[in-house]
Design a binder for these strands. Structure first.
Lengths: 220, 220
DNA sequence: CAGCGTAACGGCACTGCGTGCCACCAGACA
DNA sequence: TGTCTGGTGGCACGCAGTGCCGTTACGCTG
């Protein structure tokens, strides 16, 4: 008897959080393998079928909304001023995803513990990180076209950025995982700037190419 | 009636290849979702139960032997001369995995096409790459202890190496995916050397620390 | 050569994930 | 009040993955 039928947009987001909390709590208490999807749905007060309308699978029940994260990054790249140098742009894009992981620190800590402990969740997280990496690679490749070994630089930079993001999250967790630690986490992430092969040196040819690229982008 | 019972070590490797070939061919011909494990096992002439003694799951049926790849990398790091600089050591370790992907170019090409097309296989591959990345991160972290931001450098370098490895494989595939293209693939991979934050500059302190590290390693 | 231990195989049954299908119910609108 | 729309719950099905056990081939030993 669909007591929740005709749910509003806010109601959907609310139920999503309820399901995540139920999944995290059950996985933590009874273990991932010993918790069925029925258990999670029942704990959230909905039917099993509804669970699969909010998550593609059991492994996604503890994840932040990666669709939103990917959309945010894409938006940063799309709406950026064409003259903005690649390095700060890339860092800005990376920073927009932190709060997806770090809002609700309590749930975040439990989630990290679970992802670390359960192989299935670890692999799922790795797959999602892979999607972030691919998005960065696409955006950077397009902006490094014409540069010597631009494909390789883009791939390496994208991998480095997501690795640094991950590293920053681990650092945040090691430092207690509190809401106050979030700024320090972002600062730590920015340290990756010195390690990225994105420095446009004083090479005349590179500067010229960059100017042409900006000019083309501004025409559109 | 177990005609294959009591299989020798070579027989096991042989059957593994047969299963991979059967899986690749069936996935290519009928699609991943429309191929059951029973189909693969039957095509290889064994029972369904035997398939799961060779692969942890349906998604692994098209994979190279990653256990072997991880073991090779670990061995390179273990048996390396303690005085060997980190950069060539890391490159050497990465190169040992190419032939796992590139032996039997015919199967390799089909595998790449499948991994590119099927989400489940793409995610599985991403998870495996993640394991390689973690191994590199562990080894590099241990060797960068004491260095400024050693953890971050290790994580970034590891991510860059596996990204470059992937990039080289894509390049090989784009160049036709022939056995003759393998050397060029390795050459392309080595280009990552210039992008890695591993350069031990002429800084006196760094050199001293490196010498102490080598001395400690040699004592054991 | 006969007997025996080991290791891999095949079959069976079982749990649980993920999905297609359909009936149901709530709110919007005419 | 009738109808349309969208989210929900229940049911049933296919198949992945696993535990268990009987069977069969190979190697070792006497």
């Amino acid at each position: 008897m669909g007591k929740r039928s005709g749910r509003s947009a806010e109601g959907r987001a609310e139920l999503r959080r309820d399901l995540v909390r139920a999944a995290v709590d059950l996985f933590t208490a009874r273990g991932y393998d010993d918790t069925t999807v029925d258990d999670i749905a029942a704990a959230a007060g909905v039917g099993r079928r509804t669970f699969f309308r909010y998550f593609a699978g059991k492994e996604d029940a503890v994840s932040p909304d990666h669709e939103l994260g990917l959309a945010r990054i894409a938006e940063v790249f799309e709406t950026a001023h064409p003259a903005e140098p690649l390095l700060p742009l890339t860092l800005r894009a990376g920073e927009t995803v932190f709060d997806l992981y770090l809002s609700e620190p309590d749930t975040a800590r439990k989630r990290f513990a679970l992802v670390h402990a359960v192989p299935a969740l670890r692999d799922r997280e790795a797959a999602m990180v892979h999607h972030y990496r691919r998005l960065f690679t696409r955006e950077l490749t397009a902006r490094l076209s014409g540069v010597e070994d631009g494909d390789l630089r883009a791939a390496v930079t994208a991998a480095a950025v997501v690795a640094a993001h991950n590293q920053a999250l681990r650092r945040w967790l090691a430092d207690g995982g509190t809401a106050e630690g979030v700024p320090a986490c972002v600062v730590h992430f920015r340290k990756v700037a010195d390690l990225l092969p994105l420095h446009e040196g004083p090479d005349l040819e590179q500067v010229t190419r960059r100017l042409e690229q900006v000019a083309r982008a501004l025409e559109r």
